[in-house]
Design a protein around this nucleic acid. Structure first.
Ligand code: FES
Ligand code: FES
Lengths: 162, 162
DNA sequence: GGTTTTCGGATATGATATGTCCTTAATTCC
DNA sequence: GGAATTAAGGACATATCATATCCGAAAACC
């Protein structure tokens, strides 16, 4: 069970977009350069964010992406699910139904206890992500990233934001 | 991010082994038949459990698998990690290091804030699984599975247990 | 009209999950 | 002792998915 690397990309891109001034857009090219990622493929991740209505886009020169909501209205789970999908990590193939001791045509009333436990763990994972807002991340980063790097990064970004 | 189906197999097999009387073994063949699984491939999952010291084996006719510990000393996480591996679901490829605004040779003091949050969620998932014992599962199953199916299943199993 | 950008589809490649087959060594039964 | 049965593990085949690139269309800007 391993998450796609696009999750890391999307989260970092959202963190950058969160620091963008009102009304400005940042292009895929700039985001790819800033993170050292393949532009074409990063584009797929950003498209996922767009389909999930987390970001807005505009075309043409000076086009690109910006957040569709304020950073405190976006949580980690939304971003992760946008690129990773909403499917649960554990899928029950109902192997209990293959038990030869079962009467013909017997129908279970509940999902299997094994699956319920696995889904509960999955839900705990999602809950943790749901509780962290994008604004929390930005707050942590602005404390931890050295001030000069933080500042020069956003100068770099603003120079490229349309 | 999707767990292997072997996880479902291993958990169900452990639940069956937990109902085995002291000192008896159950073969891969019987476990595969009971769950309608490919014997050769299920064997790989059982080998993983064996390498994790969750089950013991013996060779020859009447050989097979039995639990290495009592069901209350085995939790879900152990079983899941045995077949799925212990690696975290989120891997940080340190894309922040590609930031062109970073001074040459700059070294981060902490893991990235993004990664820490993802790992926290991963830990919540593991914690949930760690808290559920195999004996809890057996308890739930013995309540939920209709008594006649439960009984005939273990008659079926005992007939094949060496 | 030419350039830049997002978007979606098509395609290629590599890794991983799934599944099968076969050999070896240990154990049991006859 | 010999035959049958079993787990262990390596080799191999296949399918699915993650990763990555490329291209054409439509929209926006100059
Ligand atoms: S039958 Fe799928 S988890 Fe039990
Ligand atoms: S650099 Fe990997 S999560 Fe931030």
């Amino acid at each position: 069970m391993i998450l796609k690397s696009q999750v890391e990309w999307a989260l970092h891109c959202c963190a950058i977009l969160a620091g963008l001034p009102e009304g400005r857009y940042l292009s895929t090219k700039a985001l790819a350069e800033l993170h050292g990622l393949p532009k074409e493929y990063l584009s797929k991740a950003l498209q996922s964010l767009s389909q999930a209505s987390l970001v807005e886009t505009t075309l043409g020169p000076s086009g690109g992406y910006r957040l569709a909501k304020t950073p405190s209205d976006i949580n980690f789970l939304e971003i992760v699910e946008a690129v990773e999908g909403k499917a649960r990590s554990f899928t029950c193939t109902n192997i209990r139904a293959n038990n030869p001791c079962r009467p013909e045509g017997y129908c279970d009333s509940k999902p299997c206890a094994v699956a319920r436990i696995m889904w509960e763990a999955d839900e705990a994972w999602r809950d943790t992500l749901r509780r962290v807002r994008l604004s929390d991340l930005v707050g942590t980063l602005s404390e931890e990233v050295p001030a000069d790097i933080w500042r020069s990064t956003f100068e770099w970004v603003l120079k490229r934001a349309g």
